[in-house]
Amino acid sequence: MHKVTIKIATIVVATSLLYACGGNEEVIIEEEVITEEEVTMEESDDMTYILPSPLQIAELFKSAGLTYIGDLTNSIDKVDNYNSKYDQKLNYGVYASNMAYCIMNNQTQESINYLATLKKLSEKLWMTDVMGSMGLTERLEANVGNEDSLTYIMADLQMQMDDYLDENGMGYTGSIIFAGAWIETMYIAAKVNEAEANPKLISRLSEQAVVLESLVASIKQNDDDNEFAELIVDLEGINKHFDGFDSDSDEDFTLSSEAVKSLSDDLTTLRTKIVGE
């Protein structure tokens, strides 16, 4: 809590009619009165972090030439292996990222398969309302081949999810889901870049430093029970690859080829830890 002093300058205009000897003369006297008012301000210690959607991240990479390599995504068969809420949240993000990747590349059947997997996970996470009434499968099927419409459908799903988490006071869940999605998208981009080096993809990988800072801060803020300590350490390890990044600077920041390789290796390790072998 802190106090702010506001100076209020008030101009008091006093109009007096003074009658001088020998005639009527109007004299205006202006007087400035300065009053000080103490305003007690209660500042919230916590910054709220607005994290981007997995769809935006996927679109950023797509615009940089992210091509489709089918076997990079996580197998839907693994969904039953995720038994803890923590694993389910992280892998919900992973599958959401996979669905966005498929949508971006017109892989509609794959997208529908990932949607079914997300439904399954949302039920395990008691988030059944998220997809209940949206008719997403029908909408996806009706828009096969129309990438633009498919991305709008994905954006609707994101909005539904945000509403649900918001209304149920589960903002922290959103951070964990986003962590899974972010790691998966970064992993896919790094692997596509390994298959064929692309300077635009490297530029996109590099600029993700801005999100990682906010992501780590957001998870830390919601980790009163030390539940996410390991994830925080892992993400901070990834953040070390972006050491030269300065969020205050408007200059472009690009990782060297060696740094990208090393980042890719660490992303692969972390991703394997999340999705399992």
């Binding site: 809590m1 305003v39 007690t40 301000m41 209660e42 500042e43 919230s44 910054m47 709220t48 972090y49 607005i50 994290l51 981007p52 959607s53 769809l55 935006q56 950023l60 991305t151 709008y152 954006a155 609707d156 994101q158 909005m159 945000d162 509403d163 918001d166 600029e207 801005v210 999100v211 800072e213 906010s214 801060a217 408007d250 472009d252």
Partner: peptide
């Protein structure tokens, strides 16, 4: 396109309150 949203709910108090949100953006978009 829709990206994200945040509803900030609060109760007015006898003191002025301040709340802040950080929004990361990508240069050039």
């Amino acid at each position: 396109k829709y990206d994200s949203s945040k509803t900030t709910r609060f109760t007015y108090k006898t003191k002025t309150q301040s709340k802040e949100m950080e929004v990361p953006l990508f240069m050039g978009e």
